[in-house]
Amino acid sequence: MDPGGSRDPGALAEWVRGEASRCMYCGLCEPSCPTLPLGPHRGYGPRGRVYLALAAVEEGRLTVEGLASIYSCLLCAACTLACPAGVDVPGVVRAVRSLARTGLAAPGRADA
């Protein structure tokens, strides 16, 4: 499935669940991420973004800080090349950005 091609938030969230569940959180992707050293926590790296994406679709919410982590991704796909499971991290990030725009993973809802 092309995550960018789906306009149905439910289908997009389901795709994110499936893709994120393939992540083994092994960390082999992290050295390739150009934004990880710039962020204040691991959420600014591929593993953190996958975790945040899964939490966003499972809980239907994303904190403002979580959304900042999602939007800090450059979509360069260096992490996907390093990933032994081939997780499409840029696709997951694009999907969560789209879901945030629809309100399914609305920023700040976790703070309420």
Rank of each mutant, 00 (worst) to 15 (best):
G18Q: 14
A55L: 11
A100P: 06
A68E: 08
A112S: 07
L81D: 12
L52H: 04
E30I: 13
S69M: 03
D111Q: 09
A112R: 08
G66S: 04
L28E: 12
A110N: 10
D2G: 11
L12M: 13
Y51E: 12
M1I: 06
C79I: 02
C79D: 00
A106C: 12
Y51W: 13
T102L: 13
C83E: 01
I70M: 11
C83L: 08
A55C: 07
C83A: 09
R47Y: 02
T80K: 06
Y44P: 01
A53R: 01
E30H: 12
G60L: 06
L28G: 11
G66A: 03
D88Y: 02
D2R: 11
R94V: 06
R109W: 12
A55I: 07
A11C: 11
V57M: 06
A110I: 07
H41G: 14
E59P: 04
C23W: 00
L81F: 10
P37K: 07
S98T: 13
P46W: 02
I70Q: 05
C76V: 02
A105W: 02
A56G: 11
Y44F: 15
S21L: 12
A112K: 07
D2A: 12
T63K: 02
G86R: 05
V87H: 01
R94H: 07
Y51Q: 09
C73A: 03
A11H: 12
H41V: 12
S69W: 00
C26H: 15
E59Q: 10
L38R: 14
L75Q: 05
D88E: 07
A112W: 09
R109F: 08
T63F: 03
V50D: 02
R22Y: 13
V96F: 04
R109V: 11
T63W: 04
V92E: 01
R17Q: 13
L62N: 01
P90M: 12
L99T: 04
E14P: 03
L28C: 14
V93K: 00
P3D: 05
R22G: 14
R22H: 14
C26Q: 11
E19K: 03
S98M: 12
H41T: 14
P34I: 10
P46H: 09
S32A: 15
S72M: 01
A56E: 01
L62F: 07
A53D: 03
D88S: 04
P3M: 05
C26G: 15
G18W: 12
G27A: 09
T80R: 06
L74E: 04
A13T: 10
W15F: 15
V16R: 00
G4R: 15
P34M: 05
T63L: 04
A105K: 00
E59C: 08
V96M: 02
V50I: 15
C76D: 04
H41R: 13
L38Q: 14
L62V: 07
R47K: 09
H41L: 10
P37A: 04
E58F: 11
Y44H: 13
L62D: 05
E58Q: 12
L99G: 00
S72L: 01
C76I: 01
D88G: 06
G91D: 05
P37V: 03
L67D: 05
R47W: 06
A85K: 08
C23G: 15
R97E: 10
A11P: 02
